[in-house]
Design a binder for these strands. Structure first.
Lengths: 198, 198
DNA sequence: GTCTATATGACGATAGAC
DNA sequence: GTCTATCGTCATATAGAC
C-alpha cells in the first residue's frame, strides 16, 4: 500500500505561497515581513527558508507562476475564427481570468518595481507575450477590414488597461453578475476598435 | 526694502515633498525610509520632523494635494457644450494632466493601501468626485441620444482606466507625440461609448 | 532650523539542536 | 523539517545642544 500522505513539502510550500500572496496583495511586498508570512502559515521564520531561498525569490515565483498560468490559459483560446469573434472571446477570457484571481492580479501589477532587474525583465517579457495575443487579433481584424483603428500598439494597451480595470471595482454579490459585466465591456471594446457586430 | 529671501521653511518643505514623491514613485512608500528622503534633500533625519509630523502624514499630503490639483484643473473644463465636445475635452484634459505628472499619478494609484483608514476614505472621496465629472458627461450624452452605452457607472470606470493606462507606456521623445496619442485615445473613447463625431 | 545621539524595536537571514 | 536563538542592520521617532 502506498503512503497515505505525501511528503510534507508538497503541501507546505503551496501554503506558504498562498499566505504570502494574500499578505502581499493586501499590504504590499515591502510592508510584509517573513515573520508575518510564517505566522500566517503556523510556522516559525526559519522554517520558511527550507522552501524559499529568500524574500525576493518568493515574489518572483508568485508573479512568474501567475503569468505562466495566464499564458497557458490564453493559449487555449480559439483564435482561428473571424477577428470579431476572436476579440469577443479574448474579452470574455481576460475578464473571467482576472476576476477569478484578484490577489494574483494585484500583485502582478503593483509589485513590478520590487523585482530585481533580471526578474523584472523576465516578468515584463511574459507580459509582452500576453499582449501579443491581443495584438495578433487586432492586426488580423485591421487587415481584414473588420476593425477600424488608428494604431494597433496603442489600441492593444488601451483595451488591456480598460479590461484589467474591472478588477478594481467588481465584487461578487454586487448588482451586476459576471456575464452582464462581460457584455458591457465587450460592447465598449468592440466600439473602441471600430468593430460592428453582425 | 522687503526681504530678499523668504523664511527657509517656505522652500524646504516643498523640497522634502518633491524628494519624497520621487523616491516613493520609484520604490514604493513602504520601501522608502525617512533617512533616504533626508539624504535626497541634503538634510539629516531629525530635520524632516520640523516639517512633517510623521511618515503617514507625508504620504497623505502628497496624495491629497495631487487630487486637489486634479479637481481644481478639472473644474476649469467647459462642459456646457454638447456632450461629444465635452467628452473630447475631458479625454484631452485627462491625458495631458496625467502625462505631465507621472510620479504623482503613480503614487496616487499605487499607495492607496498604505493609507490609514481615515486618510483612505478622504482620498477615495476625492477620486469619486473626479469620476463624477466624467459620469456627468456620460449621463448628459446618454439622455440626449448622442452616446449609446449600456451602463454609465461601468463606462465611467472603463474610460478612466483606459485613459490612465497611457501613463504606463508613454514616454517623451517616443515615436508618438502627445497630440497623436490624444487623437488615438479620443477615437477609442468615442467608439467605446457609441459616439459618432460629426 | 538643523544637528548629533539615542531609545526602542523590527527586519532578513543563518546556525545548530532535535 | 522545524525549532530557538542570534547576528548585524535598519527602521521611525524623539531629546537636547547649538
Amino acid at each position: 500500500m502506498a503512503r497515505t500522505q505525501g511528503s510534507r513539502s508538497e503541501t507546505t510550500r503551496p501554503l506558504i505561497m498562498e499566505a504570502a500572496k494574500r499578505l502581499i496583495a493586501r499590504h504590499g511586498f515591502a510592508a510584509v515581513s517573513m515573520r508575518q508570512i510564517a505566522a500566517e502559515t503556523g510556522k516559525q521564520v526559519g522554517a520558511l527558508y527550507s522552501y524559499i531561498p529568500d524574500k525576493q525569490a518568493l515574489l518572483f515565483e508568485l508573479m512568474r507562476s501567475h503569468m505562466m498560468d495566464l499564458l497557458q490559459a490564453a493559449s487555449q483560446l480559439d483564435l482561428k475564427t473571424d477577428p470579431g469573434t476572436a476579440l469577443e472571446s479574448f474579452t470574455r477570457f481576460h475578464i473571467d481570468f482576472h476576476l477569478a484571481r484578484p490577489e494574483d492580479v494585484f500583485v502582478a501589477y503593483m509589485e513590478l518595481r520590487n523585482l530585481e532587474p533580471d526578474n523584472f525583465k523576465a516578468i515584463t517579457s511574459l507580459r509582452h507575450e500576453y499582449e501579443d495575443v491581443l495584438r495578433g487579433i487586432l492586426i488580423k481584424g485591421t487587415n481584414s477590414g473588420a476593425f477600424q483603428l488608428a494604431d494597433v500598439r496603442v489600441s492593444t494597451r488601451a483595451v488591456i488597461a480598460m479590461l484589467t480595470g474591472v478588477t478594481t471595482w467588481y465584487r461578487d454579490h454586487g448588482i451586476l453578475d459576471r456575464d452582464e459585466v462581460i457584455a458591457i465591456y465587450w460592447r465598449m471594446v468592440a466600439g473602441s476598435v471600430g468593430y460592428k457586430p453582425a
